[in-house]
Computed example of a mutant assay.
Amino acid sequence: MDIPDLQKRLRSFAAERAWQPYQTPKNLAMAMVVEAAELVEIFQWMTPEESQGIAQDPLKHQHLGEEIADVMLYLLQIADHTGVDMAAAVERKLALNAIKHPVA
């Protein structure tokens, strides 16, 4: 996955629709939370076992992928609009998590 290319494509998509005035970090974060809620809604009434077997239902699995993609696309846009290097931020966070949660 080429993150800079995705961000470029998202910028073009927004520009073609004249959405730039609305795509502030605040608005993008709020939209991402709405999409995250839609992701949670998929699992809302499932048992833990049902949630683990979601890939067995093609329609639910496709819906799950769409909601995960929505959340990710908004995250990429937030990073792009705020100048956060996603790859560097993820690597840094993984390293910090390894320090915070060492292997016993």
Rank of each mutant, 00 (worst) to 15 (best):
E91Y: 00
M46N: 11
E38V: 04
L6R: 14
P4C: 03
K100C: 01
I68Y: 13
A69T: 13
A69I: 04
A98Y: 01
A89G: 10
T82I: 07
A88Y: 04
R92L: 06
Q7I: 00
A69D: 08
A36I: 01
H101Q: 07
M32Q: 14
F13T: 14
W45I: 05
K60G: 06
K60C: 02
E41H: 14
L96P: 02
A14C: 10
P4R: 08
K100S: 02
A29V: 11
Q56R: 14
Q20K: 12
V90Y: 12
A104M: 06
G53M: 12
I99H: 13
F13A: 14
A88G: 12
L75K: 11
V90E: 12
V33G: 05
V103W: 12
I68W: 11
A79E: 07
L6H: 12
H101G: 05
P102T: 04
N97S: 09
A79H: 07
E16Q: 11
Q7F: 01
V71T: 04
G65N: 03
P21D: 02
A29W: 06
M46Q: 15
V71G: 04
E91L: 08
K26T: 05
V40L: 10
M1A: 10
N97T: 05
L96T: 13
I42H: 03
I99Y: 07
P102V: 04
A87C: 01
L39Q: 01
G83A: 07
R92S: 05
A89S: 14
M1F: 10
I99L: 15
L75W: 14
S12I: 13
Q20T: 08
P102Y: 05
K26L: 01
A29R: 15
E49R: 10
Q20V: 00
T47A: 00
I54D: 02
P58A: 02
Q44T: 08
Q20P: 06
P58V: 00
A95I: 05
G53V: 02
M1Y: 12
E16K: 10
A95Q: 15
L73G: 06
R92A: 08
Q56H: 10
V90Q: 13
A31M: 13
A15H: 13
E91K: 15
M86P: 10
Q56C: 03
Q52I: 03
I68G: 07
H63L: 12
D57V: 00
G53D: 09
